[in-house]
């Protein structure tokens, strides 16, 4: 399976956020997008999952023309974990995850035993079974994020998009979040701020700056001091951590 984006232009108001972006990626792997705040990462992801409509361009997922397919059909295939988890009304965790079944349902169809089983599985996978009847709003940030991930799992997507999923999470939850996503074994496209996480978990990386892709490659090939200075405007030394044998970063101004 693959995700192909051709000559994408996205405008927010009058400002062009993404300018003539094209990429073609294999969606059976863990792909990361890095870049500074305002570089267009979220905008790109939002356009892919149809929350924003681009001015020009085409997006194909597995041959499916996403921009001209109803949201319901797209959402059966794409799972999204975004940054929008605030609610004014409360749901229980179970109901919240059950909402993940929505795209597979007709308007008047009621939830079947199968749906409940899928939800139970998703909860178990995220270690949330004991939280099932808690209210969503009473949970901590990390737990909320896991509920959202469980909701995406309940959808049984073929491909997952995550927009800075580790925001507001402490170190343990950051690692747990990445581990559980990695373990799912489906393709993932994730926007990340933490370069260390990106280097550790991603198979392939795209670097964005000013609405365009400036570099791509495997973490080993992509990360250079010049690139990081170009993206974030900081100095950085990149070295192999002698303890873990993985890429490590040391930043300074």
């Amino acid at each position: 399976m693959s995700l192909d984006i051709q000559n994408l232009h996205v405008k927010l108001g009058k400002k062009e956020i993404i300018h003539d972006l094209s990429l073609s990626m294999n969606t059976n792997q863990f792909v990361g997008i890095i870049g500074a705040n305002g570089s267009g990462k979220s905008t790109l992801l939002k356009t892919i999952y149809k929350s924003l409509t681009p001015a020009k361009g085409r997006i194909y997922f597995d041959g499916l023309d996403i921009l001209h397919t109803p949201a319901k059909k797209v959402s059966q295939k794409l799972g999204v974990v975004g940054q929008f988890n605030e609610l004014s009304f409360d749901f229980t965790v179970f109901q919240m995850v059950l909402l993940g079944r929505t795209p597979h349902k007709k308007l008047l169809e009621s939830d079947t035993k199968e749906d409940f089983a899928i939800v139970e599985q998703a909860l178990a996978k995220m270690g949330l079974t004991s939280f099932k009847n808690e209210s969503f709003l009473s949970l901590s940030g990390g737990e909320k994020q896991r509920v959202i991930l469980a909701r995406v799992l309940a959808k049984q997507p073929e491909f997952m998009i995550l927009d800075e999923p580790t925001n507001h999470l402490d170190i343990r939850y950051q690692l747990e979040m990445m581990e559980s996503v990695k373990k799912l074994g489906i393709g993932v496209l994730v926007a990340l701020h933490d370069l260390q996480l990106a280097a550790n978990y991603c198979d392939y990386l795209y670097a964005m700056k000013d609405g365009a892709i400036v570099a791509f490659g495997t973490p080993e090939n992509l990360f250079t001091q010049d690139l990081i200075e170009d993206l974030y405007g900081i100095k950085c030394s990149i070295y192999k951590n002698p303890m873990t044998d993985k890429i490590a970063f040391h930043y300074y101004l």
Binding site: K46, S51, A71, L78, G82, S88, L99, T102, P103, L107
Partner: peptide, 23 residues
């Protein structure tokens, strides 16, 4: 009463509703 699915996703907000296939 028959629109409960859409109403439920409505509570989640626009963004989340789109990802659940309802604009």
């Amino acid at each position: 009463a028959s629109q409960f699915r859409i109403l439920n996703t409505m509570l989640l907000g626009d963004e989340a509703a789109v990802t659940l296939g309802i604009s």
